[in-house]
Amino acid sequence: MKIIIFGCGRVGSRLAVLLHSLGHDVSVIDYNPDAFLKLPETYKGTNILGNGMDDDVLRRAGIEKADALIAVTQGDNRNIMVSEIAKYIYNVPKVITRVYDPVRCEMFGKLGLDTSSPTLTFTNAISEDLLQGWAVPEPSDPKEEEPEKAEDPKEEVAQ
């Protein structure tokens, strides 16, 4: 696949390395040249220095022939806008958008974007992990159950 990654942060750079190692044609866009330092020397994908909302930059990254675009910059609005450009102007078949704000994530998901909110995922994962086994003590045999259940979450937190 020809994949464009917008934003070479921790997620963007990791994705780039992973997808490139799986044999995909990867272009990463970032406006900060230092961002590309996160990529190892073994990575041989394309780095595009520039503002990903600039049409020329998107074309340089090959948006006209891209199979997928992943928007993972720090800006929710930037991610949404570039995803809309990819989806509605360039008809990129698969567009994935990171949106930190859960409200905007849901809203633009309903409007047709494939959005994902790390805030939501992470909050859910943590609370699930933390509260695992913290069921409200059952009235029948509270003495047996309680001490064991109290241990579990402490262990999880320490990890």
Partner: peptide
């Protein structure tokens, strides 16, 4: 001054 902010704010105002 940010095009992306203007777009997203307008879309929220319009759709929501």
């Amino acid at each position: 001054k940010q095009d992306e902010d203007n777009l997203i704010a307008c879309q929220i105002a319009k759709n929501h």
